[in-house]
């Protein structure tokens, strides 16, 4: 039997893993989400807990980068909430207005919560993780190529 402490730490680990999966689902392209659902077929039918919709989230900054928050401006966000037949509820929030992608991401979030399918969902997420990581590496390499070493010139007046 598990002690309550173990349960909590398992819960936290599981939540962190779900957050990691949702972060990838938020950044996956529509085509990638469709391909993931195709690989995971058959997928139980999903009903909307509420209709997928587009709305706004207010983005904030911090004064001086690390101080008190202020409102910077809004961003469009698509969200979806579904329940799989005989399964879990899944949610998705993604920047942008693609509600179809949000619904696909919510279905994948619901599938992820099924312990029996989690490993398969994680497998389909791997290419997205690799693509994002390769893109970030490419940006870092491009940026690193523009790294300069300024040097100051001593003026010969004395």
């Amino acid at each position: 039997m598990q002690s309550p402490e173990q349960k909590t730490s398992d819960g936290n680990a599981s939540r962190a893993a779900r957050q990691g999966a949702m972060a990838l689902l938020a950044r996956a392209e529509t085509g990638e989400l469709d391909a993931m659902l195709a690989r995971l077929a058959p997928v139980p039918s999903a009903s909307d807990l509420k209709p997928p919709e587009v709305g706004l989230v207010m983005l904030r900054g911090r004064t001086g980068g690390d101080g008190a928050p202020f409102n910077l401006g809004e961003a469009t966000v698509a969200r979806a909430a579904v329940r799989l037949e005989g399964g879990a509820a899944g949610f998705a929030y993604r920047l942008g207005r693609d509600v179809r992608a949000a619904r696909a991401a919510a279905i994948l979030d619901a599938l992820w919560q099924d312990a029996g399918r989690r490993a398969a969902v994680e497998d389909t997420l791997a290419p997205v993780r690799e693509r994002l990581s390769a893109e970030a590496d490419a940006v870092r390499a491009e940026t690193a190529a523009t790294k300069v070493d300024f040097f100051t010139l001593v003026r010969g007046e004395d």
């Binding site: 587009v54 207010m58 904030r60 809004e74």
Partner: peptide, 15 residues
């Protein structure tokens, strides 16, 4: 932007 509902506010961006 006035046509859309607001879902809430994000955590401050970590620059």
């Amino acid at each position: 932007r006035t046509t859309l509902p607001r879902f809430g506010s994000a955590q401050p961006l970590d620059t």
